[in-house]
Amino acid sequence: MARITAGVATSHVPAIGAAIDLGKTQDDYWAPLFKGYEFGKNWIEKEKPDVILLVYNDHASAFGMDLIPTFAIGCAEEFAPSDEGWGPRPVPRVQGHPELAWHIMQSVIQDDFDLTVVNEMTVDHGLTVPLSLMFGQPEAWPCKVIPFAVNVVVYPPPSGQRCYNLGKALRRAIESFDDDLNVQVWGTGGMSHQLQGPRAGLINSEFDQDFLERIVNDPEGLAKLPHIDYVREAGSEGIELVMWMIMRGALNENVKELYRFYHVPASNTAVGHLILENS
């Protein structure tokens, strides 16, 4: 039986990807951030997950205005990196896990979450930056990845509560898959940031620290946080944090916090990172 062993949360700022691709990780500006991911890189090398269900949002790369799915699961065998306007990132193509992805689709839709199946799509920095942070620059990604895209670009995104409940449905789906697989669920995006208008550059460390604490120890309460609180307190793009709730919902009620990291700034954004183990 497939089992979810751990959850990882991380921001997915595009400039982090550029810093890696351009060999700037040891620059004064970037070194403190990358130091915060050393623990995770060592940890995951030992954990050797077979599959990562990677919850992220597409940033108008695979999905423009022509198609805007709230929840989309990538069921293909392979996904190439997107050209987001400066050429595709020089990272390996992502190898999917069609058997598990299709299984999840069937299970989760019967559990009342209407997923959109995507067989042809590219994956942008939202998905590839977390992989780079945790795995560095390998020739090929060391495990299979199921892209799980959430709309947080066009308002309204799904609520925190719905994301949390979806996480629980994903868990039931994964645990009903017969093959013996070590599965991790990642939630990405955030933390506080705003990329637009005169309020751009908003960072709310107090909100972020509280979020990091509550997602570990009070996810039920945190799930009730309405959209407007994310927008007002954590910036218009801080609402990406609802995706962390999917990761949390897929884990046990009680988890062991292995690692926590918080850093400001990466470009316009506060970076948060958690590693949670099912206990």
Binding site: L195, Q196, P198, G201, L202, R232, N268
Partner: peptide, 27 residues
Amino acid sequence: FEQAASSMTGQTRDEYRQMMLNGGRSP
């Protein structure tokens, strides 16, 4: 993104970058 965001704030690029290094715009 940083440069583009700064252009929307009425701050210069350097002022904006310094604000971010100082912990960002306060809520």
